[in-house]
Amino acid sequence: MTRPPTTAADEAATRRRRPWTGLTLLGVPLIMALLGPLAAGDDFPLPDVVPSQPPGSGHPLGTDVLGRDALTLVLEGGASVVGSALAALTVGTLLGIPLGLLAAGPRRGLDEAVMRTMDLVLAFPGLLVLMTLAATGRRDWLWLVTVAGVLQVPAVARLVRGAVLAPGTQTVVEALRMQGRGWAYIHLRHLAREVAAPLATDAGGRFSTVLYLLASANFLGLGLPSSSPDWAVLIERNSDALFTQPAAVLVPAGLLTSLCVGGNLLVDHVIARERNRR
């Protein structure tokens, strides 16, 4: 049986439905990250609680390998995941934008120096850098977020440089210079508007990249301590009890997956809408 051809109305309906899927997948872990710590109780192990206990009375998701309530840990762990990813994304953006603007300036030598430095940073694997820091004892939250943010700088700088060096943008910049406009007016008023849309779109997809890097580091024990309720840490700590207490692993894993997939769906929808508008 052959499928009927897709009409324009069907495609429009599909585009209208798509954001709700992304919003739902992204909204559930975000709401849990924001409101979860307020609803969570005490996460310390109780003396009469059995470690890796399956879901039951008093423990809807069971307990973890330390005898702590798994639901309480899941409610508390989202704030660490989302906060770390947003902080690293902010670091990469704040450092990448001025470097991209410098590279797009009129000085060719400065462009080469900035871009070759970005190529050098880009050559270092993220997990290898975090492993080196962990080996030297630098494995707290601040180091984790800072390194993850710095590793995003080359991509952000290249994006800003490419947007500023676009032919249409350069034509307007030359016109503004002929009118006597200064550097601050050109870069902070005109060019800022030109790079805002690409940066906003890139930030949605880059959030998943940063989240993947941070979750991988925490899962491998390179980041937060093993007692942290971070979702990636919970997956690593309870992985040995996957078959006896799967909820302690599958629930945080599902929330991490939902966070990444929901963000990617929303970015795809924004790009599709922009393409259709043009």
Rank of each mutant, 00 (worst) to 15 (best):
E274T: 07
L61C: 06
T93Q: 01
L95K: 01
P55V: 01
S84I: 00
V160R: 00
G27N: 09
L26R: 07
V249G: 02
P125K: 00
D240H: 15
S216E: 05
A166S: 12
L266A: 06
F124S: 12
L133H: 08
D119V: 04
G262W: 09
Q245K: 02
G182V: 08
V195F: 02
W141V: 15
V160F: 00
A215E: 11
A217H: 01
S258T: 10
V74A: 04
V210Y: 05
L86T: 03
L127F: 06
A184Y: 13
T24R: 02
R193C: 05
R273V: 07
A39C: 04
T136M: 15
R193S: 12
V172E: 09
Y185L: 13
A247N: 05
A192I: 11
T136I: 13
A13P: 12
A123S: 13
L75Y: 04
V267E: 12
R158W: 00
L188P: 00
D230I: 00
R139G: 15
A148K: 03
L25K: 02
V65H: 03
L61Y: 05
E11A: 14
D69H: 04
R277T: 13
G67C: 03
V121Y: 03
A39I: 06
A85I: 13
G36M: 01
A88C: 07
S208K: 03
A166D: 14
W231S: 08
L86H: 05
A40V: 01
L66T: 03
V129A: 14
M131G: 08
W143S: 15
F124G: 13
V261W: 03
A157M: 00
Q179S: 13
H190N: 07
F243A: 15
F44D: 14
G22R: 05
D230M: 04
